[in-house]
């Protein structure tokens, strides 16, 4: 009984709240996109402003006929979306934003978060490989090259605050930032944030880096053969992952729950939504770049900058420790 209350209830609550938030992130995205393109966006389903649209979409996708291509590997084909969804939800166990503390208490939370969320790529690979579709195959090859290369600047940009703060746990990072948020840390903070922002765009498959589902070239990338609820799982997982990265950014760079007037866990989500909206603006105003340009940009620009920054912050930390 104790186990049920302590363990199952928070998990259940987290997942349901998370999925609700994410469903309305899709609504937010459609509304922002509509504003940017001088349209109205979802309006009729649930007045005012189509507030029931996410539920209608989810219902429609759930009621759709479940189909899989003839020569696909059925087991893996069904396993792919489940893997992606489970992994992207699992990473939220470490984020301290739903309840007072995170569900798994560890002082290596950040490392674990990155490790878990980078497992998503395995599910995407399974999906693309088992669809037995050439578009999906090319998309999967692209996304692996992309995520492997962009993981490096992402991790390093997250390590820089950790080195200066001296901990990998979210609680310590939040406590450190009660006075100044890390984004206001002179020079290093801003560069690290920009690195983080760019590489998390690539991690979350957002335009201008959404090469894996470049629908003008690869029809729909690794989700080409998916429909109905399985497609919905991919879609949901993408937004969950993106929201997770936004929360991470808000904790590590924007000070988490600490605000100017009051301190509350609500502020973590608010800042994450702010980051998410910036991502939306980027998405709906840029073209897509080519895969070789994407990789060149990473290996020629992002990685050298991030390594230099890492070295500088290590030296800084060493010097500060000496002074103290």
């Amino acid at each position: 009984m104790n186990l049920f209350i302590d363990f199952v209830t928070p998990i259940f609550l987290t997942i349901s709240i998370l999925i609700l938030i994410v469903a309305y992130l899709v609504w937010l995205e459609r509304k922002v996109a509509a504003k940017m393109q001088s349209r109205i966006g979802p309006y009729l389903v649930g007045k005012p402003h189509g507030l029931l649209q996410p539920l209608a979409d989810a219902l429609k996708l759930m009621l759709k006929d479940d189909s899989s291509p003839k020569n696909s590997d059925r087991l893996l084909f069904n396993f792919g979306p489940i893997w992606v969804m489970v992994v992207s939800l699992a990473s939220f166990a470490l984020l301290p934003f739903v309840f007072e503390n995170q569900m798994i208490k560890t002082n290596l939370a950040l490392m674990l978060f990155i490790a878990i969320s980078s497992l998503i790529i395995v599910g995407i690979f399974i999906a693309g490989w088992s669809s037995n579709n050439k578009f999906a195959l090319i998309s999967v090859i692209r996304i692996i090259a992309q995520i492997i290369s962009y993981e490096i600047p992402l991790i390093i940009s997250l390590l820089i605050p950790c080195i200066i703060i001296g901990s990998l746990g979210f609680i310590e990072i939040i406590n450190y930032q009660q006075t100044t948020w890390f984004i206001f840390y002179p020079v290093i903070g801003q560069i690290a944030f920009i690195l983080f922002f760019i590489s998390s765009l690539a991690e979350g498959n957002r335009i201008p880096f959404d090469l894996s589902e470049a629908e003008s070239e690869l029809v729909s990338g690794y989700t080409t053969e998916y429909s109905g609820i399985k497609f919905a799982l991919f879609y949901l997982a993408e937004y969950v992952h993106l929201f997770g990265i936004s929360v991470l950014g808000s904790i590590i760079f924007l000070g988490g729950p600490s605000g100017i007037f009051f301190t509350s866990n609500f502020l973590i989500v608010f800042k994450a939504l702010l980051l998410f909206t910036i991502v939306l603006f980027v998405r709906w105003s840029f073209f897509r770049i080519r895969i070789d340009q994407l990789l060149k940009f990473n290996w020629n620009n992002l990685i050298p900058i991030s390594f230099v920054l890492l070295l500088i912050s290590c030296l800084l930390k060493y010097y500060m420790d000496l002074v103290i």
């Binding site: 335009i207 470049a214 003008s216 073209f287």
Partner: peptide, 21 residues
């Protein structure tokens, strides 16, 4: 051309919709 370059779910769609307006 915007759709070709930027995809139907991105900046290309914005260009497309402005042109069609």
């Amino acid at each position: 051309y915007g759709l070709d370059l930027g995809g139907a779910l991105g900046g290309g769609a914005s260009l497309f919709l402005y042109c069609f307006r």
